[in-house]
């Protein structure tokens, strides 16, 4: 199949059509009867109290309809649920997802760590192992179908699939506090070879241009929350910045990852993502430029 969304679409179309029929039926009866039997004059009509046969009929018919829908839903569940292969013979690729307020962390086997942007191979089932660092989040990439909550103290798995390469935008779907709205995510599906290349480069330590920018980042508080593997030892409270330059967006999608975007974010995160857990770190204009240049060079 094309994507893990496909089976859901098929089922939805069937259910939607049936629902539309039911609604059309009820509405038609409502309108026709109202027009046909409208009569403001006083006087009375035959008093009909009920009809057992009809009651049986309109209990049985919906039952049959719902039984069908339920059966179909089990089929679909089998196609997208645990262990689904989506018709692909490849073994699934595993990615660990950690939900944070308010950003997604992605960890790959082999050491690659990234934030808010994950690459996946097209044509291969992806198995996401979902965990949370704080509250309940939920990973949803609409174009890839089902979502799953990310519950602290519980390990959920979500299987997704796409046959065609492309960039799919998604978001955190479970309310998780102030910036739930800006907890967005990009999934980049690419041919296996490109994916492997990307994975290697992400696993490699940072090769950013050393110099002024690096000095500032080292001396400023950045390292108390960020890590740049190979160049900045720190604690990873915030996103791993080793290859931050290679991402399309910043801070869950609030800003494009351009020189301007990067400068804007570092200069005042609260202005673009009020409530985000990164403080405004006062830097001189010169230092700011250097830091931006350095971070952008982390490709």
């Amino acid at each position: 199949m094309a994507t893990s969304l496909e089976p859901i679409v098929v089922l939805s179309l069937i259910v939607g059509a049936l629902a539309a029929l039911v609604f059309a039926g009820v509405l038609a009866a409502l309108i026709v009867f109202t027009i046909r039997f409208r009569d403001p004059r006083p006087g009375s009509v035959p008093q009909i109290h009920g009809h057992r046969g009809l009651e049986v009929a309109w209990t049985a018919a919906p039952l049959a309809l719902l039984a069908t829908i339920f059966a179909l839903s089990l089929v679909t569940l089998g196609q997208i649920g645990q262990g689904a292969t989506f018709g692909s013979l490849e073994p699934p690729v595993h990615v660990t997802v950690v939900g944070h307020q308010w950003w997604f962390e992605f960890r790959y086997p082999g050491g690659a760590v990234t934030a808010n942007e994950a690459h996946i191979p097209a044509g291969v089932p992806i198995e996401l192992d979902l965990g949370s660092a704080d509250v309940i989040h939920d990973l949803w990439i609409p174009e890839l179908g089902a979502k799953s909550d990310i519950v602290p103290g519980q390990r959920n798995v979500l299987r997704l699939f796409t046959a065609r390469p492309g960039t799919f935008s998604g978001a955190c779907a479970e309310f998780c506090g102030l910036e739930h709205a800006w907890m967005r995510v990009l999934i980049v599906a690419e041919p296996r070879a490109d994916f492997e290349r990307w994975l290697r480069s992400q696993a490699a330590p940072a090769s950013g241009q050393a110099g002024r920018g690096l000095e500032v980042v080292r001396s400023a508080v950045c390292s108390s929350c960020h890590v740049v593997r190979g160049q900045l030892a720190g604690t990873s409270i915030g996103p791993d910045l080793t290859h931050v330059g290679s991402r399309a967006t910043l801070a869950g999608g609030v800003l494009a990852n351009t020189d301007e975007g990067m400068r804007a974010w570092i200069a005042d995160p609260q202005r673009y993502k009020p409530g985000a857990l990164m403080p405004r770190v006062p830097l001189s204009a010169a230092d700011l430029d250097a830091v931006v240049a350095y971070l952008r060079s982390l490709r």
Binding site: L5, S12, V26, F70, S73
Partner: peptide, 28 residues
């Protein structure tokens, strides 16, 4: 009469949400 028409719509979307695969897409 208005109630019957609008409520049935809400009820039917409710049933669609009771279908697990559809809800996994539409929930939240």
């Amino acid at each position: 009469l208005g109630f019957i028409a609008t409520f049935v719509i809400g009820g039917l979307t409710g049933v669609s949400l009771a279908v697990v695969p559809i809800d996994l897409y539409a929930t939240d």
